[in-house]
Simulated scan of single mutants.
Amino acid sequence: MRTVELLCSAELDAAVRAAWGRLAAAGLPSLARNTHSSNRPHLTLAAVDEFPPGAVARLAALLDAALPLPARLGDVTVLDGSASLVWLVEPAAELVETHRAVWRVLEDGEGHNPWHQPGRWTPHLSLALRFRDADWTLVRAVVGAVSAGSFVAARSYNSADRSVQPLAGYGG
């Protein structure tokens, strides 16, 4: 699987990582426990089995023109159909249009993940996987609040070899 992901500004990245740390310290599931070098806060725009020919260059140009994008965070919740604890990202017009444009670039790709398709996509930053029922008062107190930040770079993650390919505005 290949993804297209937006990466957080330094301040937003630090805030999400701090929330991961507080969840772990409270004994709750957290992405802080994933120590792979590719694990960092991100917003997934699309996931496909394979990129169509020429997609990387087209995605890079599209995302270079779109970034930075504002990120206003909303509620903390568990996504329907999954057990992922997430921070919702309010779907600003610029973000929604960038998402649709990424899907147009990937329309000839194989194996689209339907969770990310326009009209069904729920923009979010993941906090924990395999999250089950919990004391929501504790969860909200532990996570804290972040109101806004920005997305400043883009990458593609390849699940086959756990590698990352920079796409735009990438600093690491």
Rank of each mutant, 00 (worst) to 15 (best):
R2Q: 14
R2L: 14
E5Q: 13
E5N: 14
S9W: 08
S9C: 12
S9V: 11
E11K: 04
A14R: 13
V16R: 02
R17Q: 13
A18M: 09
A19K: 07
W20T: 03
G21T: 02
G21E: 12
R22Q: 05
R22V: 07
R22F: 06
L23D: 03
L23Y: 04
A24T: 07
A25I: 04
L28Q: 10
L28S: 12
S30Y: 09
S30I: 08
L31V: 04
N34L: 11
T35R: 15
T35Q: 14
H36E: 15
S37G: 14
S37Q: 11
S37T: 11
H42A: 12
H42L: 06
H42P: 08
L43E: 04
L45Y: 02
V48A: 07
D49V: 09
D49Y: 07
E50I: 00
E50C: 02
F51S: 01
F51D: 03
P52V: 02
P53L: 07
G54Q: 07
V56P: 04
R58C: 00
A60R: 13
L62C: 06
L62K: 07
L62T: 09
A65M: 07
A66Y: 01
A66V: 02
L67W: 11
L67R: 12
L69M: 09
P70A: 15
A71C: 13
R72C: 01
R72K: 07
D75P: 00
D75Y: 00
T77W: 03
T77S: 13
V78Y: 03
V78H: 04
G81N: 09
G81R: 11
S82M: 04
A83G: 06
A83Q: 13
S84I: 12
S84H: 08
L85D: 06
W87R: 15
L88W: 01
P91A: 03
A92F: 08
A93F: 03
E94T: 11
E97R: 15
H99F: 03
H99Q: 11
A101Q: 12
V102Y: 02
W103A: 02
R104S: 13
V105S: 02
V105K: 00
L106Y: 00
E107M: 01
E110L: 11
N113Y: 09
H116N: 13
H116C: 10
H116E: 01
P118I: 09
R120I: 13
R120D: 11
R120H: 14
R120M: 10
T122M: 12
H124W: 12
H124E: 11
L125T: 08
S126T: 15
L127N: 08
R130P: 00
R130F: 06
D133Y: 05
D135F: 10
W136F: 10
A141M: 00
V142C: 09
G144I: 03
S147T: 15
S147E: 15
G149P: 10
S150N: 01
F151P: 04
A153D: 06
A154R: 06
S156C: 05
S156K: 02
Y157I: 02
Y157Q: 03
N158L: 12
N158C: 12
R162G: 00
R162S: 13
R162K: 14
V164D: 05
V164R: 07
V164C: 06
P166V: 05
G169L: 11
Y170F: 15
G171E: 15
